[in-house]
Design a protein around this nucleic acid. Structure first.
Lengths: 144, 144
DNA sequence: TTTATTTCGGATAAATTTATCCTATATATA
DNA sequence: TATATATAGGATAAATTTATCCGAAATAAA
């Protein structure tokens, strides 16, 4: 469904949100350990998230990655996915046609639309705050 | 969402269904032309579909690929997807956790379940006959 | 200002997916 | 049986994704 990069990006963002809520910055090393991902690759993904304004980075001693406390509730899953995989997951044709719309639909266009809309809604209505809260409460997990 | 191989496999199956309904077998060459796919790669995918019993192949002169007329209505999209991509699209964790279920859910487990169930339902309730019919009537298209 | 720390970013490598090519194998028909 | 026709399948290559490495640039603190 999502690329590995995107999976890591989502999990990393949640971990950063949890720490930022406590005023703590985190390193790629700490993130990779927490979400069980390759460190250098994770660092690249963090760069992409910074470029897209999803998270902030602070260089130098006592630096690290963070998210503004008051933005944690506003960051949507869709922003993270878009920053890494783009919007192809819901904008591209399910069967790879270059032109696929209401007047020139692929064989599964209408049926796929329902699934893609459901996915888009889900990504646009899920915030980092909500996901971070469930990790904190032990209702969900970032690894294993 | 699906791999290229799976996209080609679905489109190829539809084209084979259309021709089989008229008692005609088709070659990888004809299929590739009709669905705008690389011929040799498409041939490989057809082999996988044959191995999984989704379509039949007949070697030698006047041979080609076909689907038993009376099976066209029973072949579901899920069978094609399973034959090529496996069931990972709805069985794997959306965030790549090895263990992700009700008692050890990833952060998006419950939200993803709705989307994955919707997708599974769609794939299990769509038959080749239905898709072939829409191509025949001009309601949908296999390429462009 | 020097040093330790930490992200940035380019180069490269490994793994997977996508794609191509060529020969073997099977089959209908002359 | 010989020949033409088709799929099967192995080997290989190209492209993309995933992953690693290392020096450059920035920053805090001594």
């Amino acid at each position: 469904m999502f690329s590995k990069a995107c999976e890591y990006g989502i999990k990393a963002s949640i971990f950063i949100a949890i720490n930022s809520a406590e005023g703590k910055r985190v390193s790629p090393k700490a993130i990779a350990k927490e979400i069980a991902s390759p460190e250098a690759f994770t660092a690249k993904i963090l760069q992409a998230l910074v470029k897209n304004g999803v998270i902030n980075s602070v260089k130098g001693a006592h630096g690290g990655f963070e998210i503004n406390k008051n933005e944690i509730a506003t960051v949507k899953l869709s922003q993270i996915v878009n920053a890494i995989d783009g919007d192809k997951i819901y904008s591209n044709c399910g069967l790879g046609l270059h032109t696929c719309d209401e007047i020139h639909p692929c064989p599964v266009h209408h049926k796929f639309k329902i699934v893609k809309d459901e996915l888009r809604d889900m990504l646009e209505n899920t915030t980092l705050e909500e996901l971070a809260q469930n990790i904190k409460s032990g209702a969900s997990f970032l690894k294993m």
